[in-house]
Amino acid sequence: MSISAIQPVPFGRRIKRFMADRPLIPLIILLVILVVILQILRPGIVNERWLANTIKFAIPLAILAGCQTMTMLTGGIDLSVGTVATMSAFIMATQVVNHDPAAAILIALVPAVLIGLVNGIGVGVFRVHPLIMTLGTSLIGTGCLQVYQRTVIASGAKIPPFLAWLGTGLTYGVPNALLLFVPIAVLIVFTLRRTGFGRLLYAVGDNEGAARLSGVRYWQVITALYVISSVLAGITGLLYIGLIKAPSLSLAEPLVLPSVAAAVIGGTSIFGGRGGYTGTIIGALILTVLTTLLTILQMPEGARRILFGLIVLFVTAAYLRIIEDR
């Protein structure tokens, strides 16, 4: 980097500076490149239906990645989101058989709040490493879900029509899931940028000691954060089951690691204090397009995973290079 500073290449350097100042631009360029590659490989695939489908599948990933973004801003991580989403989806689908859908949804969100509370207390009060804490609670959650499954195995499950409408439906070619996602996204971006709570998250992640000395009640911030993260994950579960329409005990589990990847690709530092949600949304879109791309290449599952891992690594490394230049 220092070499490029000495060399007199003003134009290239200006572009680099420009990209470093607006970290979203290289991400959007990458997204466009991926879409163009897709269009070249399979001409005509990029149409309205494809767009709607991509958005539909990117939304659950983007919300879960939002949980990761917020927890990562404080230097944490929330690996229990997959279990929480699966739990709320499964419990809702089985409770709706005997209850009103609204009541079922409320019941389904109870474990989400509980897990969030335990995570928050463990991380905030007892100072357990977030990785361990959330892995532990997700293990407990999965166990509870399996025990619960035994009790409802006879009653069966169904998906309320309005969740299916929300998950898969289109209005004038626009996915209905955006009705849920846009408010959530606006709320997260607004919270992070404009509210005191958002500033506290950045402060805690940037320098915990300084935040504490300036009067931040660390455990309260962290507990609130993990509860919010869990509730968001629970809502994602409800949306995701409307999309997938088949309740299972590992419904949202495959989304966990990609959600971390989406937040990292979007430029959120895993050590805290830096990042934002808009980048994460584009990160989720990039991963979704990438998955489609790898699927239409008709590679064996193994090769697809290899490419996925390599690309995630490459994108993150390249992106870090660009913003570190600041």
């Binding site: 971390v260 891992g309 690594l313 490394a317």
Partner: peptide
């Protein structure tokens, strides 16, 4: 790459699993 350990090993997790 100077990418955090957790992200790199996450990526290699996918690569090794694929292999």
């Amino acid at each position: 790459t100077r990418v955090p350990d957790i992200v790199v090993t996450l990526a290699t997790l996918f690569v090794l699993q694929g292999a």
